[in-house]
Structure formats: structure tokens, C-alpha cells
Amino acid sequence: MLGKTAGGLFWMARLLERSENTARMIETGQRIALTRAGSGADDWMSVLQAGAMSQGYVEKHGEVTADLAIDWMLRDPDNPASVLSVVGQARQNARLVRTALTHEAWEAVNSCWMMLQDAMARKVRDRDLPKVLALVRERSALVRGAIHGTMLRNEIYDFVRIGTFIERADNTARILDVKYYVLLPSAAAVGSRLDNVQWDTILRSVSAEGGYRMAIGPDVTPRGIAQFLILDKCMPRSLNFCCGKLRDNLRYLASDYDLRLPCHQVVDTMCRRFLSHDINAIFDYGLHEYVQEVLQNLSALSNQIEIDYRFYG
């Protein structure tokens, strides 16, 4: 496979995953806004921050309002991270690697782009927002399904999966990075209603409120949330789960090529360093420092994969 193709697959998957995550964050923000009084400007700001879109927003609009924040995150062409921009880039990558995709996989990506373009051709009205966000999730699910159901389990699939899980781990880590303070013992001690809402926000941002109840139980506690999002083995968006998948898919490549590369060392070290402790040890170490380091490691892993598999040169 061409190095460029591996890179295209990796980025296509990352961007598709990113668009879905962004839609989920908008949904969460919207939900918080609906369940409480006030402007909710702070909440939208933290949503923008979790999506790493706050800087561009402030430059363009200044003050944060729900309306503008939603439009910025959903469809503003000036925002390279808006859902629509990201899906457009994902599709460009899919075109680049058209020959590596099955007909169904390509058509799923292409129709995802076409339908979202139609749905977001104009500013999305409040009452249409749930429908549009649902469309993003549905279309992403269709793409995932087409890939899952029609693509050979070979190097092509491995690069798609690697892209997906790097992005997903990055997303979960970024949510923790923005919201870590509400999980700290000092915050938990306050035990206010506000914190409960914040905790709920975190779980919803990763579609985990149902899963949490199943895996941990009905009592939502900061430590429980951290445990669930970082270390849970079954939760498909936890750092542990994502890193495990990264390690697995990189191992498939190594055995397929009969070649172990530096990125394999990076992922093994990362799993050992960050995921072999219990949650108390992580809190002792410092949740913020921990999350920061995970983010740095994910970025280093991404770069190493890019070099090892010759995405660009």
C-alpha cells in the first residue's frame, strides 16, 4: 500500500470520528442549556474548549452565545473543525484513497457528506437541531457499518482503526482535560447541584450515562467517572479501551509486515505507563498532569506512526 494511502485512511477515520464527537458535544451543550436557567455562556465556552475551537470562535464572534457557538461548531466554513468542514476533509481523504475503499464504504462517506451539506446548507434552527445532530450520528454509524461490513481485515482496515482510536482517545482525554477540576476531591467535597450537572455533562459528552449505570452503578461520583472514562475495559471510549485497540491494530500491522517499528514501542510504553495503575494512583499523581501527558503521548504516537509507515515521505 502507498504510504500516502495509509495516511489518507488514517485521517479519513480520524476526521469522521471527530465529526461525530463534535456533534455529541453540541448535543450535550444544548442539553445543559435546556436544563438550567441563565445564558449558559460558561458551559458553551467549555464545550468550545473541549473541541479546541474556542480560540477561533472568540476571534470571530467575541462574546459566547448559544446560537453562535452552535453554528460555529456545526457548520461555519471559517472553522476548520466544524462538523461540516471536518466531514468535507474526511471525504477529500476518502477520495484520495478511493481505490482502497469498497464501493459501499466510499458511497457511505460520500452520501454522509452530501446529506450533511444539504441539512446544513442554511443556519440550523433550534427546533431542527436535534434532527440534524441525529443525522450526523446516523450517517457516521452508516459509514462505520459499511466499513465494518464490507472491508477486508487487512492493513487498510488496520489504518482506519488506528485513526479512529487515536482520535477517540484524544477526544476523551480532551474532555477530561477541560473538566478535570470538577472531578477533583476538593470539588467533590462541595457536592453542589452544579457539580452534579457538570458530572452529567462529562458522561453525556461521551455517550456514557447509560453505560456508567450498567458498569459502575446508580451513584455518580467523580472517582467513578474517572475510573470509567480512563480505565474501564468495556467502555468503547475509555482511554484504556482505545489504547488497547491501538496496540492491537499496530500489532496486526507488525505481524502482517513481519516488522516491528518504533511506533510499536511507543504504544506499548504508553499502555504500560498510563493504564496499569488503579484510579487512586492516578489521583495521587495528579489527574491534570496525567491527562496532559496522555495527550502528549497520543500526539507522539500519531507522529511516529506517520513516520514509520511513510505517510508523507
Binding site: M1, L2, G3, K4, T5, A6, R98, T99, E155, Y257, L259, Y309, R310, G313
Partner: peptide
């Protein structure tokens, strides 16, 4: 067959070669 662009190709060992994930 592979779909290549100019920047995927180089002259290597007297041949025109494409950059793959394995060299």
C-alpha cells in the same frame, strides 16, 4: 493497481519507485 501522484514517486536503484508503507 495503485493510483500515484508525483510526490509518491522517486528514482530508486535505476527504477521509478513508489513510496509504500514498506518502502
Amino acid at each position: 493497481v495503485e493510483l500515484v501522484e508525483g510526490h509518491d514517486l522517486r528514482v530508486v536503484e535505476g527504477r521509478v519507485a513508489m513510496r509504500t508503507t514498506r518502502g
